[in-house]
Design a protein around this nucleic acid. Sequence first.
DNA 1: TAGGCGTGGAC
DNA 2: TGTCCAAGCCT
Length: 349
Amino acid sequence: MPAKLPSTIAPHLLARYDRHARDLPWRAPPGTPPPAPYRVWLSEVMLQQTQVATVKPYFERFTTRWPDFESLAAADEGELMAAWAGLGYYARARNLLACARQVVRDHGGRLPDTEAELRKLAGIGDYTAAAIAAIAFGARAVVVDANVERVVARLAALEDPLPAARPTVRALADTITPEPRAGDFAQAMMDLGSDICTARAPRCLLCPLRADCAGHASGAPERFPVKTPKRKRPHRRGTIFWLTSGDSVLLVRRPDKGMLGGMRALPTGPWTDAAPGLAEPPIPAEWRLHDATVRHGFTHFTLECTLASARVEAHINPEAGSWWPIDDLDSAGLPTLFAKAAAVMKKQG
DNA sequence: TAGGCGTGGAC
DNA sequence: TGTCCAAGCCT
């Protein structure tokens, strides 16, 4: 394990935070009482692997429509999933509802204030439990996210590659986390990672920790954190079925488990190495394969879907499907892959 | 424990 | 275009 980090880091960082803290809807200015735990929790879940600019409009809509745990716990799951559409990682939405119901049922509608208790709730892992404990309740918790990993790896010029070196990073972060203002410290680290100590081309000339940083001293701070190489993403092919009747199109609900679980969707065939053509349509019909395709990148593979369409006279009623007005598809809450496909089909007429 | 799980921005 | 990356969690 590398040497202990300089004790000047926390005061330097907090001094910058007092002057330059970002003004965010879920954040209280430094030196003022913390926001409601509900808002801290909701923002932290939305921010998991998701950038601030993307989260802002979702946070505003959710807090307007469901301002507290009680109202969210009473929400209809389908409406909540639709409201989450476009934000990604849809298991978060299912866990959000499960967590709100846990809080109402087991904790009287108030979020527990310790890491250990928070950690038991759906969708709350090590990072989120620490962040809530520190930011909402003022506890001294060691908050380690991707920003903290990057900043600490640079401060220490850590040669051990992530993610294996995560325990080392956490131990180093522990040595610089202050007892008072642990929440401000965590948010200050994230602001630093977002504004200055960025993944590529860090702006060291603006950094309040420059004199404390072994990465900067090394002359190549962008080299850190060292990471083990990733496997490249495979390509898959699929077909999206556009079945219309009158002014409506057939939508299905995807299984809770697996890709886009629980989301409303256009029917698809299998996703495989080779283009599957008209395999596994939602119903037998005079399907026509189009030239148009839709490409979409997921976390661990990219998908290219061919579009197929057919028309039926009556609103047949398949078990898992429902008819949706084509002009109102924006309100269906479709994941981006299907929103793209719908846009192409509406354009083609 | 390593892989499944979305999306949009930066370059 | 492709690639990497981002306030991770779950199994």
